[in-house]
Design a binder for these strands. Structure first.
Lengths: 153, 153
DNA sequence: GGCAATTACATTGTGCGCAATATGATAGTA
DNA sequence: TACTATCATATTGCGCACAATGTAATTGCC
């Protein structure tokens, strides 16, 4: 390897490092666009869909617990949940045991929508073109990177 | 493999498919937080940083060309570039050849900031904990998925 | 030249996400 | 009980991203 090649490699490494994050941004936006296509007819966004699925799976959750599961805080969740409540998909009620807490639950309409959207994850997976093994590998990589970035502050 | 195992695998497959995208969301936000730590002292955001680097690399660009490179439209770029112009990092000028076009260039202060931020990509790469090979693999996977999602509409 | 179609940006409105702050409820303590 | 600290959520302000629309400049065609 010549010195000029090493220089070039180093420059490429920098470009790669700097762009791996932007590549992820771009891919996420492409995923979002694909979800938007499948979800917009039903009047919900991708984050709302995730919130609906999460509450649907875990049963009624406090806002704080939902935030832990989704890695989001009340500044994001409060208005999102209010929009979903206005759309009739979830209920929000103060916990009588502790009036500070707000418990979020899926309404009948919300469950109905979840049923109608049951095939969405598979459609997205097919569109992504990733094999099951690639999905597993990617997911493992993402989890590892996220943990590294979160703890390595 | 028993039927119950198959059912379980199928459920897990669905969960994986549905969550690979959200895992990417979470990872991107972790990357953003890492960049924010390194960039906020200099008064710019991650998208602004990318825009600055892109114009710095390619030389003066029209808004449209920058949008092609960043995969963003004028609805995002126009206000972003105006903020960067207000911060003195870029210049914006109508192209005399075609007054519809706005040409974006990096100012002296912008070049100075780019120099000061030269080590940021490497710091991020180190924090991510990914090896060079893993970076390459991940980048390849992301490019492939993005293209599939973009074309497969 | 005159006029419609196209091009390149800008603007508006909506939602997501984060930081900082505010509000109200609960717990702890004197 | 009163007073403070803490906790759970809400609110505000800012920036990013997208969709839809608006506007001014250019091109194409007659």
């Amino acid at each position: 390897m010549t010195p000029s090649n090493r220089t070039s490699d180093s420059a490429n490494a920098l470009r790669l490092e700097q762009q791996i994050c932007y590549a992820m941004h771009t891919t996420v936006r492409a995923f979002d666009a694909a979800y938007r296509e499948l979800l917009s007819d039903h009047g919900i966004s991708y984050p709302q869909y995730i919130a609906l699925m999460t509450v649907g799976e875990h049963g009624p959750l406090t806002v704080g617990r939902l935030g832990e599961l989704m890695h989001l805080d009340s500044g994001t969740l409060s208005p999102l949940l209010k929009r979903m409540e206005a759309a009739g998909l979830v209920g929000r009620a103060r916990d009588p045991e502790d009036e500070r807490r707000v418990v979020v639950s899926v309404t009948a309409a919300g469950h109905h929508l979840l049923g109608a959207l049951g095939d969405v994850p598979h459609q997205i997976a097919v569109r992504s073109g990733l094999s099951r093994q690639e999905l597993l590998d990617l997911h493992r990589t993402l989890r590892r990177v996220t943990e590294r970035l979160d703890t390595g502050a």
